[in-house]
Amino acid sequence: MTAFAQMSGAQMATVAALQSVEVAYGRGPALGPFSLRLELGEIVALVGPSGCGKSTALRLLAGLEAPTRGEVLRTAGPGETSVVFQAPTLMPWATGLDNVALPLELAGVPRPQARERAAAALAWVKLKGAEDAKPAQLSGGMAMRASLARALVTGPRLLLLDEPFAALDEITRRDLAADIHRLWAAAKPAIVFVTHNVEEAVFMASRVLVMTPGPGRLQAEMRVDAPLPRPQGFRVSSLFREAVEQVSAALAEGMTA
């Protein structure tokens, strides 16, 4: 069963919120007005066509950019927000372990402890043995895993994923999706997942926000009422197919509107 959004009655902790934010760059408006409230422990997918401002919304949530108008609310403290970009974005000169230890070392964690925690994070994403490998020696999927390990090493309350699967093959993609759900189940952070792939959005998220072409506004919002992590065979269930149809319809409606 998929239903149009009905916020659950239970009061949850807000991790971040965008309140009627608008962003304009030199070339014109890029986003908004757009609002989003993010509760602890939920996975929200932002779906929209290229150039609708999904990534901009993500940067606002990360505090990396300020809106032109509107307000951004963030309760995650420094070091409690992590971002995974489209590309692995690892430092090519540093080993896997040094790359993953970076956020801790920047925050002043002593080197031995930082490396110990980084090694644990690498093991957690099944990259044991890649400690001494430089990024060029890793495959695309392994590099993305290392990037995920770096994001989770600080134990974030807010995890922002900017099309993290865009450059991966289908099998690696599914592996990594499972990893992200496993991470979510272990620590229950709030996750925002940006994508232009409808099936991926429905598979990953408990709530899907469909955006209009740029400057992006909210076109539709829907819940995916299935347990997380997804049960076996979820991709062939009628619930999944129906949700995908609904999101696709909303996307198409936004494109023609």
Binding site: L64, S82, V83, T89, M91, L102, L106
Partner: peptide, 9 residues
């Protein structure tokens, strides 16, 4: 990477 360094202050 620059953004990442921003993010982690």
């Amino acid at each position: 990477l620059e953004r990442l360094f921003d993010l982690y202050g």
